[in-house]
Simulated assay, not measured.
Amino acid sequence: MKTVDFYLDFVSPYAWLAFHALPQALQGHSVHVRYTPVLLGALLQQHNNPGPAGIAGKREWTYRHVSWLGHSLGCGLQMPAQHPFNPLPLLRLALRTSRDGHINRFTADAIFRHVWLGGAAALDADRLQALELPLAEQIKTDEGADQRAKDLLRSNTDAAIAAGVFGVPAVAVDGKQFWGLDGLPMLTAYLNGDAWFAGNEWDSAANRPSGLKPA
């Protein structure tokens, strides 16, 4: 059985879309999925990347595109009242259900739906309180739970950066990283034993010289 790491941040609409599509991409394969919350902002900062929401024009297009994709894929997606927003409260809530840095699919699904269905404010205090109800049996309440959640998020993010994760959603298996919703068909092909992966195209991509000089 292969272990598959699914890196996510609840602020990313593409993470919600890929989360919905992942079971179909893995269908027919014996895998163990580890859902791993990370702080997208830290990944972007590592590469001086403002992300789509930080680029005029691209921000509006992204919101149109993901809304269409939610409709097209059948999972739904309504932009929250404000975006982007600070995802730390949601990431830390998720990791209050964990002791090893990974969360189960039920927890991830509950929080993704909280953000991406209905169009309400993701950080509304009353909504956050209501979100804890379905997670109550999993949320750790010992004295160190809050600090442990913070530490797990930091550790997850640092480990993701060290592994070369540059954004979410990202799926890692066998040392290979598949990025984005549109990377899922490639992931499926790899798991299916597609002959393309036996060639040198994967490794040669990392060795391609650039024709641009540093500014």
Rank of each mutant, 00 (worst) to 15 (best):
F112M: 14
D100N: 12
Q82E: 14
R105W: 10
Q78T: 15
A81S: 07
P89F: 04
I111L: 05
A108G: 15
H102Q: 11
S72D: 13
L90H: 00
F106T: 15
P89S: 11
L95M: 11
P80K: 11
P89V: 08
G74E: 03
G101A: 02
N86F: 12
L77H: 07
M79L: 14
L88D: 00
T97F: 09
L73G: 09
G101K: 04
P87Q: 07
R92A: 04
R105T: 10
L90M: 02
F106M: 13
P84H: 08
I111Q: 04
S98Q: 06
L93N: 07
G74L: 00
N104C: 14
L95F: 00
R105F: 11
L88F: 13
S72W: 03
L91N: 09
R96G: 04
N104Y: 13
A110Y: 00
T107R: 08
P89C: 12
A110G: 06
I103N: 07
R105S: 12
L90R: 03
A108C: 09
D109K: 14
D109R: 13
A110C: 15
L91A: 15
R99H: 14
H102P: 02
N86P: 00
S72C: 11
A110L: 13
I103D: 03
D100I: 05
P89A: 10
Q78N: 15
I111D: 04
M79S: 14
Q78M: 08
H102L: 02
S72L: 12
R92Y: 07
R99G: 15
G74N: 03
A94Y: 06
C75K: 09
T97S: 01
A81Q: 12
N86C: 13
Q82H: 13
G101T: 02
C75A: 07
T107M: 01
R113N: 03
L88Q: 05
L73A: 13
L91V: 11
A81V: 10
H102N: 14
G76V: 10
P80T: 06
P87T: 00
M79E: 08
H71S: 12
P80S: 02
H71C: 06
F106L: 09
H71N: 12
N86W: 03
Q82C: 11
R96K: 11
F85L: 05
N86S: 12
L90E: 04
P89D: 07
I103T: 02
G74F: 08
P84N: 02
R96C: 07
C75V: 05
R99C: 14
T107N: 13
I103R: 01
R96P: 08
Q82N: 11
R96W: 13
R113S: 12
H102E: 10
L93V: 00
F112D: 08
S98V: 03
L90P: 06
D100E: 12
R92S: 09
